[in-house]
C-alpha cells in the first residue's frame, strides 16, 4: 500500500459521540471518571462480572467516556454495581466507580429510567419512613419481647413525606 493510498482513507473519529462524561463529571462525585485509563482492574476484581456476562465495569466506564448516553441510561448496567468498592480499593488511578455509577443512576432517574424493584422499594421507604414495615409481623414482635427488646418500633414517616415532596415529586411514579 502506497503512502498516497493511506491518505485517502476517511479519518477515524475518536471524539466521544456526546458530552455524557462531562455531564457525569458535574454530578456529586462524578468527577473521578476522567481519571480512568481503562486498565480493567475493576472488571478483574468484580464479583458481579465473575458471575454474569451482562456486566463489566470497565466497559460501562468506557461507554460513558465514549458518550453513549442513551444506551447507558436506558440499560440495567448502572444498577448492576453492588457498590462493594472492591474495584475502587484496587484501582491504581483512584477512580471511584460506585460513586460514578450513582451519579449515572441520578441522571437516569431524572429521565425516568428506574428499575421497577428500585421504584417499588423507594416508594415504600418514602411512605413508611423505613424499609420493612410490611415484614414486621406479630411473630417478630414476640421474638423481640422474648429477647427483652422493645416490641414497639417508633419509625418516623413525616420526614420522608417532606423528602418525597421536595425531591421525588413525579420521579418515582409508575
Amino acid at each position: 500500500m502506497s503512502h498516497d493510498e493511506v491518505k485517502q482513507q476517511p479519518p477515524i473519529n475518536h471524539a466521544p459521540s456526546s458530552n455524557f462524561a462531562k455531564e457525569v463529571e458535574q454530578e456529586f462525585y462524578g468527577d473521578g471518571i476522567m481519571k480512568c485509563i481503562q486498565c480493567g482492574m475493576c472488571t478483574a476484581s468484580c464479583m458481579v462480572a465473575s458471575m454474569t456476562e451482562r456486566y463489566r465495569p470497565r466497559m460501562l466506564i468506557q461507554k460513558i467516556l465514549l458518550g453513549k448516553r442513551e444506551e447507558v441510561l436506558s440499560s440495567e448496567l448502572p444498577w448492576l454495581c453492588m457498590t462493594c468498592r472492591l474495584c475502587e480499593e484496587r484501582c491504581q488511578e483512584d477512580v471511584n466507580l460506585s460513586e460514578i455509577f450513582h451519579a449515572v443512576r441520578e441522571i437516569a432517574a431524572r429521565e425516568g429510567y428506574i428499575p421497577q424493584v428500585f421504584r417499588n422499594t423507594i416508594n415504600k421507604v418514602l411512605e413508611d419512613g423505613w424499609l420493612l414495615n410490611d415484614a414486621y409481623t406479630d411473630f417478630v414482635e414476640d421474638d423481640r419481647s422474648d429477647l427483652g427488646l422493645d416490641p414497639k418500633l417508633s419509625w418516623n414517616n413525616d420526614f420522608v413525606k417532606k423528602i418525597k415532596k421536595r425531591y421525588f415529586e413525579g420521579v418515582t411514579k409508575k
Binding site: E27, F28, Y29, W79, T83, H102, R105, E106, A109, I114, F118, T121, I122, V125, L126, G129, W130, L131, D150, S154, W155, N156, N157, F159, V160, I163, R166, Y167, F168, V171, T172
Partner: peptide
C-alpha cells in the same frame, strides 16, 4: 441508648436517586 423517631438512612435506594435526599435522610 435506643434512638426513637428515626428514619431509614437511605442507603442503596434513595442514595441511587438523589444524593441530596440521601444526605437529608442520614443527616436527620
Amino acid at each position: 441508648i435506643p434512638m426513637k423517631d428515626v428514619n431509614c438512612c437511605g442507603a442503596q435506594y434513595i442514595e441511587s436517586l438523589s444524593h441530596t435526599a440521601f444526605a437529608a435522610m442520614s443527616g436527620r
